[in-house]
Design a binder for these strands. Structure first.
Lengths: 215, 215
DNA sequence: CTTAAAACTAGGGGAAACCCCGAATTATTA
DNA sequence: TAATAATTCGGGGTTTCCCCTAGTTTTAAG
C-alpha cells in the first residue's frame, strides 16, 4: 500500500486525481494540500510514501516545499506535477530532490506508473520533459562553448566593475565603492570593452545581460 | 440527463473531471477533446447540452471555439473553465457567448451546481470571477493610469533611438541613420532617461532588455 | 473646435566616457 | 624561472553623453 498526499491549489484537479487514484487498490490518498504551507503542516502529523507536488503553489512554491520536505523527510519520494514543460522549473525542482516530473497532460495509466516508479526510488519523466532536459543540457554546453570562445576570461575585478556599471553607477562612484582610482576603473572599463568586443557602455550592458555574465 | 463534453488539453484534468461527473446520475460525459479543433470535429457527429471549455486550448483557443460553437449550435450551453482569473479572458469569452466561467480551484459540488445552472440557461460565475468582473469595470481606467505611470509610453521615434543605442550606435550615427540632428537624438535620449527612470546609458539598456521593450 | 499635452525638433554648456599613451606591482601559469 | 595576465595609476586629448531651455507640430481631450 502506497500512501500519498496531493498538493495543488486547484480543487478540481485534486478532486480528479483523488478520484482516479481511488480506483487503484494499492494507492491510498492520505491528504490534500492547497498551498505549500499546508504541506509542511500536514507532514508533521502524517506519514506518507509519495508526495504529488505541483510546482506552482501559493505561499510556498513547489520548489521551496520540495527542498524542505527532502531535508526533513528523506524517505518521502516526490513526484512533481506541472502544467509547464519549462526547463527552469524542471531543473530546479530536480536539483532540490524531486524524483520525477510529469505534466498535467499525462494519462491516468502513466500517472499510476509514475507513482510506482518513484515509490521504488527511481526517476520518472514524461516524454516531453525528457526532451526539455536534453535541450537544456545541449543549450548549456553550446552556451558555455560560445562563452569560452568569445569571452575567455573576465577577471574578478572586471566583473565587479561590470556589475556596478550595469547598476548605473558612474566611473567615479565605482572608484569610490572599490577604493581605487578613477583611472583604474577606466582601465577596467577599457579592458572590458576589448574583451567583450563592445563599442561602448550600451554594448557592455547588452552583451553582459544576453550572456548572463554576472553569475 | 445532461449530455456533456469536456475540452481541456490536460489529460489528467479531463480524467479527473470525468471521474467526478460519473458519480452524478443525471450527467453523462459524451466526449473528451484535447484541442480546439477536436471540439469542432466532435460536434459534427454528436449532440450535447453543455460544453466544459478550457480557455487555453491548443490549435484553436477557447475563445475562438466558443465563438464558432455558439454560431453553429446555439442550443449548446458553454461553461468556461480556466486556471486564470484574468479579466481579459473572462470578458472575452463571455462576449463570445459563454454562459459561465469557473476556476479550476472550484470544488466538485460547485462544479455540478454550475453545470446545472448553465444548462438551465442562466449564468454562473465563481466568487473570484465575479469580483474580477466588477474590478475590471470599475478600475479599468485607474489600472491603465497606474501602468502608464510606472511604464510611460515610449514614442515611435524614441523606440527607434533606443533600439539603435542598444545596438551600440553612437548618437552621431543614430542622427545620420534617422536623418535628424545630433541634438535631436540627444533630446530623445534625455526623454528616454526620464521616462525609464534611468541614470545613464547602462540603465537605459538594462531596463529595456529586462522589460522586452523592443517588441 | 479649442486647448492642453505630448512628440519631435534643436542648441549651449558642462560632465562623463572613451582613447592612446606609458608604467609599476602582484598573481598566475607554463 | 620566465612569460603572461591582473591590478593599479597617471597625463592629455577627443568624443559622447547628459541637463536645460525652447520652438514647432501632432495628438488627445474637453
Amino acid at each position: 500500500m502506497i500512501r500519498l498526499a496531493i498538493a495543488d491549489d486547484h480543487t478540481m484537479f485534486v478532486d480528479g486525481i483523488e478520484s482516479i487514484l481511488q480506483e487503484e487498490s494499492d494507492l491510498q490518498v492520505m491528504g490534500r494540500c492547497f498551498d505549500g504551507q499546508e504541506v509542511i503542516d500536514f507532514l508533521k502529523d502524517h506519514t506518507i510514501d509519495v508526495l504529488l507536488l505541483d510546482v506552482n503553489l501559493p505561499k510556498l512554491n513547489g520548489i521551496e516545499v520540495c527542498e524542505k520536505v527532502v531535508a526533513t523527510y528523506p524517505n518521502i519520494k516526490i513526484l512533481a506535477i506541472s502544467m509547464f514543460n519549462e526547463e527552469s522549473y524542471v531543473t530546479e525542482i530536480l536539483n532540490k530532490g524531486a524524483l520525477g516530473y510529469i505534466l498535467k497532460n499525462t494519462g491516468r495509466k502513466e500517472l499510476v506508473k509514475a507513482i510506482h516508479t518513484v515509490h521504488g526510488g527511481q526517476s520518472y519523466f514524461s516524454k516531453e520533459v525528457t526532451q526539455t532536459i536534453m535541450k537544456g543540457l545541449m543549450k548549456q554546453r553550446l552556451h558555455q562553448e560560445q562563452k569560452a570562445k568569445f569571452f575567455p576570461k573576465i577577471s574578478k575585478r572586471e566583473k565587479q566593475v561590470l556589475r556596478l556599471i550595469i547598476e548605473e553607477h558612474t566611473t567615479q562612484e565605482i572608484a569610490d565603492k572599490l577604493f581605487i582610482s578613477l583611472k583604474t576603473v577606466e582601465s577596467h572599463r577599457s579592458s572590458l570593452l576589448g574583451k567583450m568586443n563592445a563599442r561602448n557602455t550600451a554594448g557592455l550592458v547588452r552583451i553582459a545581460l544576453e550572456n548572463n555574465m554576472l553569475d
